[in-house]
Simulated assay, not measured.
Amino acid sequence: MQIYLDNAATSYPKPVAVADSVYNFMINNGTTSGRGSYKKAMESDRLIYETRKLIADLFNFNNTKKVIFTSNVTESLNLAINGILNEGDHVVTSSIEHNAVWRCLKTLERDKGISITKVKASKEGYTNPEDVEKSIRENTKLIIFTHASNVLGTIQPIREIGKIAKNHNIPFLVDAAQTAGAYPIDIQKDNINLLAFTGHKSLLGPMGTGGLVVNWDKNIQPLKAGGTGGDSAYEYQPDYYPNRLETGTLNVSGLVGLRESIKFINKESIETIHNKEKELVKYALNKLDKIDGLKIYGPKDSEKIVSVISFNIKDLRPEDVGFELDNKYSIMVRAGLHCAPNAHELIGTKATGCVRIGIGYFNKKEDIDILANSLIEIIKTYEI
């Protein structure tokens, strides 16, 4: 029996209907969207529009044209960050960002001379909104926060931070990689201007899908230029949405799968998914906290985190724990720095990394029981 506990990296398994929809589209249609007026191409257009609409509705947004599709959340974040920041601008961000944000900012710091304020967080990864406001300068042009840490799971107070950004007329970009599909997000109530999401994590869709929801009226420079299927004689990127920010052939088959996964989420409901994962996280925290020699990082409170738990075992390298779990017990976890060195610096594990489990909607309490028992056996084997 194999147990998958790496849903923070990508969700698995997917609903069967997701794979079926991708297969059926590729076999029975297979055409591009926005590139033809024949019946099958028009059907592709309809499917893409329906996916945009489902995304917009999921996040309480009312402009489908400003749901921009990308290949993943990293591209979405790069699109927003590079499209807004200019030479000499200042940006405020958290101290637990994924490299999808941090490397992008550091590159702009090196190449364009932007300045970055990394707001301090508590050891549990929580950011005080007041500290965000204190970091704002006259030249602050963007505030970027992850919704939840992919290392600690800590949920950030984005609604409060968004209100601060709104009061200062600064666009607020939220990285929803760990929350979209498993945690309620309301673009209006949460004061979000730009929401970056990926399809392959808690949205339960295929890899190679993602997007940026643009709830902002000011200019964003395109990340890419090229064919859009329309206005082909015009030599520059169109200035209307979605074509302004969306160019080249879309991953229609992947987005058809994303359409089906969102329909599945709507049928189950975000509330049901969130409550089940929260229950599993609470159960896992209780089980793991009782294991001698095991240290859990971040809040030990299922109300304050998404379904991510990171830990280390005394005197054991995290990669060795991960190897043992996989090799002897067929349990798949993630070990290392999780592309988030800032978060590891915060908790003192930048030199070693840690073991991370990512619980998903299709996991069961039995999976956690087997994990806990396996970790106890590993500890006994190494005589810790």
Rank of each mutant, 00 (worst) to 15 (best):
T93C: 11
E324G: 02
E133Q: 10
L85M: 06
D289P: 01
F25G: 02
S33R: 00
Y236A: 08
N150L: 15
E124M: 09
G353L: 11
G257N: 04
K134S: 12
K189S: 15
P13F: 08
H98L: 14
E366F: 02
I291M: 06
K40H: 10
T209D: 05
F323N: 10
E160H: 03
Y361W: 07
E277H: 00
I185Q: 01
L173G: 09
E268C: 06
V92T: 10
Y4F: 15
Y234S: 02
G254M: 03
L371G: 06
L294K: 04
K300N: 13
T117K: 07
Y183D: 08
V18D: 05
P13E: 01
A148Y: 02
P299V: 04
K350R: 15
F59K: 04
D186Q: 02
K276C: 08
L85C: 03
H344T: 05
D301V: 10
M207T: 12
E366D: 12
H274N: 12
G181F: 13
C339S: 13
E87H: 12
K14M: 11
V22C: 07
F61G: 04
L142W: 11
I84E: 08
K123F: 13
K365S: 12
N78D: 13
E277I: 12
V308M: 09
L346P: 07
L5D: 01
D239Y: 02
G113W: 08
F69S: 00
E43D: 10
N266R: 11
K365N: 11
L108W: 05
L316Q: 14
H147M: 04
Y241W: 05
S330E: 13
L108P: 09
F264N: 09
I155C: 02
F264K: 00
I164T: 08
D186F: 07
T31K: 13
S374Q: 01
T198N: 06
E271S: 12
R334D: 09
L294G: 04
G348P: 06
D186T: 09
N169Y: 13
S37L: 13
I158M: 04
E279I: 11
M42A: 07
S21N: 10
K365R: 15
I192Y: 07
S33N: 09
C104I: 05
A121G: 08
A182F: 01
G353S: 10
I347C: 06
A19D: 14
D57C: 00
R259P: 10
F172C: 06
F69P: 07
I370H: 01
N150D: 11
E345G: 15
Y38R: 11
R159D: 15
G227Y: 11
